[in-house]
Amino acid sequence: MNAIDVVKVGYIRELLAKGVREDSRGLMDQRPITVSCDVIDNAEGSAQVDMGSTRVLAGVKFVLEDTKPDTPNMGNLVMSAELLPLANADYEPGPPSPDAIELARVVDRGIRAGNCVKLESLFVGEGKAWTAYIDIYVLNYDGNLFDASSIAAMAALMSSKIPGVKDGAADYGSRSSPVKAENIVTSTTFGKIGDKILFDMTGNEETAADARVTIETDGSSIRAMQKGLSGSFSFDELERLVAESMSRHEGLKKLIEDSIRK
């Protein structure tokens, strides 16, 4: 944390002690979200999510690969995330940082555990299946990358169309079958600053945050969770946030569905 960050933390905390956020939102309010699908024509699926000034782009490419011996009738999902240096002054080029790895793995867990796309449906035959490579590109950072990336990955995957197969190879020129999405998982990330719990933190708020928890749900079950930062939550707080997360699922799900129909 540099000297400027220390000053930021100071005013964020002072405001919050009075129950006020820097953008005058309520503690549990979400910033406006827009989701745009099919923004990259060359990708089989793509979605850009704007959440306040956080901007994330997810792209999906399908690659025809040999099936794995232990899953002979399934395809695969591979999730990666890049915190691009153009997105934030603190991001540096180089191999993925622990933050980027955590982001990709948490988004991956929700979508995988929620069986959003049945991996069997990616099986082609004769030892071949599709691997969906989902790459999350963070274009501008202003907090809450977990939720923005989860929506972007979910929307990009659901809106993608699998290429055809010609002579045992992928035929990227033809796109026929849309991916069959069986389930939609949504992500909600809460922060704790002092004794205040807030939803959808900005970048400044994340700098000030003591703890963070991401809860991913399909409405009936929790599908993934991840606590981050050095602070703590009580089990009571977590149970309350699980309920909160589930109650927000329908709204976020509709947002994703609407973006695909457009």
């Binding site: 929700g110 555990a113 929790i222 599908r223 703590s232 009580s234 977590l238």
Partner: peptide, 23 residues
């Protein structure tokens, strides 16, 4: 000393009730 949760990860499927039971 206070049962605060310092690490939490989860994947799979838990209902609210199952989460409480796990606790």
């Amino acid at each position: 000393r206070n049962n605060d949760v310092l690490l939490l990860q989860m994947d799979g499927g838990f209902t609210k009730e199952q989460f409480a039971e796990a606790k």
